[in-house]
Structures are given as C-alpha cells and as structure tokens.
Design a binder for these strands. Sequence first.
DNA 1: CTGTTAGCGCTTTCAC
DNA 2: GTGAAAGCGCTAACAG
Lengths: 344, 344
Amino acid sequence: MATIAEVAQAAGVSISTVSYALSGKRSIRTDTRDRVLAAAQELGYLPHASARMLAAHRSHIIAVSEPVHADTDDAAHMAFAMESTKVARTHGYDTLLLVDDDALDGMRRSAATQLADGIVVLDVDEDDARVALARSLDCPTVFVGIPADTEGLVCVDLDFEEAARAAVDRLVQSGHREIGLISHRVETLDRGSNFTRRFLRAFVAQCERRHVRHAVVHPNGHTAQGSVNRLFDALPGLDGIVLNTTADVASSLSATLTARGLSIPRDISVIAAGVSFSTARFAVPFDTMPLDARASCTAAVDLLVQAIDGGGLDPRIVLLPPTYIDQGSVVTRTPGYPPLRRVS
Amino acid sequence: MATIAEVAQAAGVSISTVSYALSGKRSIRTDTRDRVLAAAQELGYLPHASARMLAAHRSHIIAVSEPVHADTDDAAHMAFAMESTKVARTHGYDTLLLVDDDALDGMRRSAATQLADGIVVLDVDEDDARVALARSLDCPTVFVGIPADTEGLVCVDLDFEEAARAAVDRLVQSGHREIGLISHRVETLDRGSNFTRRFLRAFVAQCERRHVRHAVVHPNGHTAQGSVNRLFDALPGLDGIVLNTTADVASSLSATLTARGLSIPRDISVIAAGVSFSTARFAVPFDTMPLDARASCTAAVDLLVQAIDGGGLDPRIVLLPPTYIDQGSVVTRTPGYPPLRRVS
DNA sequence: CTGTTAGCGCTTTCAC
DNA sequence: GTGAAAGCGCTAACAG
C-alpha cells in the first residue's frame, strides 16, 4: 500500500501538507490541495488504520455489545446490530461485534486497549452487569434500552410506556370495554428484559386510570392458543387485544380467534405495540406501534459519536415517541350494537 | 491506562523484557517473568491496541462481510456472524461487521488500511462480486459458501450435494417410491443463492440415478400449502418429502398435510436437509441434516487464522459432511402394505 | 537471558 | 500557506 510519504513525494509537498490536505484541518492553497488529492487518488492511498489510530488517539471503531440470551429473538437482535453498524458507517466508524460472554468482557478489553472509541450496549436487562462496568470504564457508552438504575448513563429507547398508554387509549376511545394484553413469556420477564416489564406496568396503570376491565397473560408456548383461552376466562366480554409479544405468538392469533368463530376486527380489535416484526403479511395485518431498530440505533449512535467527538455528554434518557401505523385492525364499537358473537 | 514503560519500571526490567515476558516469544528467567506478570497484573496493564497493531503489522481483527438481501433469513445470518465472532475470539481475534453495501466496500477498505488481518465472507451468491474483489486484495479471505467460480479461493460449506443424495437414498432405501422436494422460493434461487441451487441439482440427479419418481416445487408464500398441492398434482402417490426451505414453510407442513387427512410419518415421510432451524419443537419433529452455523464458521475461521498466522494458504474447497438426526419422521414402507390414505 | 534502539505510518505541534 | 520533526506505545531486530 502507498504511504503518506509516497503521496507527499508524488505531489511534491511535505508529509504534513498531505495530512492536512486530506483531513482539511488547516487551509491549503487550492492548487496544492488539488495536486495532493490527485496524487492520493493516483496511488490509491488510504491511511494505515493503526498508524492513524496511534497518532490521533482515535480508532474510529465503536464496539457493539450484544449478549444474546437463550430466549433472545435472533432476528430482532440482528436488526439492532446491523442498524448500529450502518449508522456508525455514516459517521466514518466501523463496528466491533462483542457477543455472548464477551459482550461484557469485550467492553472492558476494547476500552482498556483503546481499540474502541465508544460502546453501544444492546439487549439491556433491568439489572445489567454492563451498567456498573460502563460507569467504571471512562469510555463513552450509550445503552439501547433502560436498565433499572440509570444514574450517570445515556440511554435511548422507544417510549414503551407511552406506547402502552396510546394502545389502551386508542381502544378505550373507540368504545372497547374489556382489554387483554398478550405479553412476553414469563421467562423473558423473569430474566429482567427491561422493556417487556415497562410495557406491562404502563398497560395496567393506564387501564386502571381509564377504568376499563383488563387482563394480562403470558404465552407458555409459541402460539397464542393458551393466551387467548386465558384472556377469555378472565374477560368473557373481551373486545380488544394488545400484543407486546413475539412474532410466532402474534402470527398465530388470527387463526386462534378464527377457531373460536371470532374475526378481527369484527369481534376483536388488535393492536401490536413495541414489536420489532411487521404484521403486514399476516392474514389480517394489525395496527402497529413498531419498535424500530433503525430509529433507536440512529439516535444511540448519533449520541455516541457526539460524545466521542465532542468530548463527553451529559447523562440522559432519550425516549422515542411511538408512531401509530393504522392497518384497520381496530374499529369503533357502538354500545347499542354489540357485535354478534359465538363464544365456543 | 498503564503503558509498557510503566510496567517495565515497576518490575525493574527493560521494555523489551516486558514485551517478551507477556508474549512468550523468547525465554525469560522464571523469576523475572513472574515479577513482570505481577507488575502487569498490579497495574491492570493491557497493550494499547493500535500501538501493537502498528508495530506488529497485525490488527488481530477479522472482518465479517454480511450483505443481507431482501429475502435473507435474518435469524440464520445472525447465527453465522455470531459464531464467526465466537470462534475468532478463541484465537484472540475481534470481528468487524461489514453489512449491506459496505459488505463489499468495507472489504476493500479494511484490507487497504490494514484494519483487518483477514476476511470471512458470508451469504455467498453463485455470482458474487466479492469473489473478484477477494482475488485482488492480498488479504487472506475465506468464503462460507461456494460461488460458481472458485478459482484461487478458500471456501467452506456444508456438503449440500451429499445431504441431498443422503436424503434421497434414505427415502429410497426405506421403500419410498415418489419423492418431492420443497425448495426455496424462486426469488432466492434467481438471486443466485449458491446452496439452494446445489441442493436442487443434486436432488434431481440422485433421484434419476435411483430411478425414483420425483418432483420439485418452490413455495410462493410463507406456507407449505401451495407447494404440497403442486407436489400431489405431479406425484399422486407421493410418499416422501424432502425439505430444503425456510422455517415458515417447514413449520406449516404438518398442518397442511393434516388438512388433507395425511399424517407424518404414517402416510408421508419427511426429511429436512441443509436447514438452519430446528424442527424439534414442531408438532411433528423431522429427521434433519442441519446446516450448522457453528461448524461452518469454526472451519472457516480456523482456516483463516491459519492463513494469517501461517502466512498464506492454498486454495481449497472444504465440504463438511452432513450429520443425520433421526426424529422418527421417516418410516419403512413395505410394498405389500400400502398405507391407508384418504386423498382429499 | 536481558537491554538498547530503530522503526511502524501517521498527526500535530512548532517554526518559518 | 508550508515544512520539519517530535512523538503515539509497541515489537523485533541487534547487541551484549
């Protein structure tokens, strides 16, 4: 590979002139700059990464910490890692992938060796060991997700609480009287997954505030079957379902209701909220407030780069407002015209 | 962070002694080494990554090129990227994630700047632009997948041809007479996905060699419905199905057959081959020859590290033999006792 | 077995 | 507006 010295020689200038011409960090006469650029182009010059890192005290690398638990949704997490990478590239940063047990240890390592300029923490638990680590590291870090103790951290996430409230209000305001939430599997909540709990708590609180009958169930398998049964046990007049669950459970909901002689939205309205899959190709698409990996990662990486380049960043929690995608799975229910229903 | 000079001072030795004591690249008296190690431990010393890279002409970073097409199976690809990362760590390497359009350009960049010591190429098409690029790069590269022109390349993959042959033979030898293959969607084959084509060609060839009636169908949606219909149109006596398709299609097969009054394996035997999902939790689990991300990535990264550390590697194609997992979805069919069947 | 030192290729002061 | 040169922190000859 060509070195900066070769470019300098070819352009008939000094090494520092080449460096400045390429970085633009000080003004260069236009014709010299052009000569330098031409020479660099000609030689296919690209600065040697480690030399640049060493001299500039900056690696232009962001570490992405992605544990991946047993109950993790691979497709969803792939999306977050990929989107982080794409956004990082727009800022001239590459991403180092830290997975599994190295998700924790790699943070320490890449910070201590100054391999990474900053860290994005994905798949955050309420009680996440990476929180304490991040505080001790002296390396800019942004969490995508909200742990229990956010003291001193920068966190970005969809506003799950607002999404839950909006889902409840949407159903209540369109005349629904008995609302069920199909949440995630209990294992996921027990593990400490931060957003599943936040959503659930906000759902219950908002239902109570609106004085609407409600129930919460957790799937025990990979279909909606059991969940639907338990919802009807708790709420015989169930007319609205909120989904904050996995793709497999959501995709089986229509068929499960059909088996009971019910259809969406004629008998039951459905809203999926805080989910990272699309329901557009379901037999019946659902109104959705998506958990948008791109949006979260863009906000997170932008903040991280700001912290790196701008030298620090004040702790803060950034909650992204949910957007509502109407697909016709929610209808207005008029009290005087209760829907026909055959409860089997 | 502590520098090597501080460790040297603390241990009362020279810089080079510290370097050698830690790398083990030359013999050091045990007590001096112990003193160095203790000092390093004490100071929490870790070598500055870019300084080490620059001096050693080695980054200890492997780039992972992962395009991600529209029809790509996110969960499967996440597995390959993650497994590559895990294996790389066992060799002391970190991985840089190159996605999307940067999957190609990032290869050039990370090789030219010597950011990466080597490259793993995932999700390989038959006619993949990264093949020509890899040849021009002067950076050790291993492909996980087999492109059409493998001249000069190192490629690793499951032996899909052997898997197809083994599936056909297993069915033929247990008395099956009419065999159908549910392949991937035509878009996937048209795009050039290398293994889907290899599997299909080998399946047909082996059926012809065994003189068994056969048919191949491609799903048009995300269920097996249409595929099954077309298989029965072509082969009214269908008694064996080979699946080399996506998880959604495979998971709907049982229900689709049930709807026709058929059950697995009583009426139809099923083998899933070259698939990266598990059928263990299906209503009826299938005999499977898995596409094992871990196995492929281990072989690939091991070869790559060998090429980096050993200075080069001869071109080669490494085909991993399929393993057969018996889950009881294939039974022996005796000609004298044709299975009862109600074709609807 | 250990120490001295010349780089690695770049960025960035400092001097002109 | 440009150039000379001092590092960045480490590895690996080279010299004892």
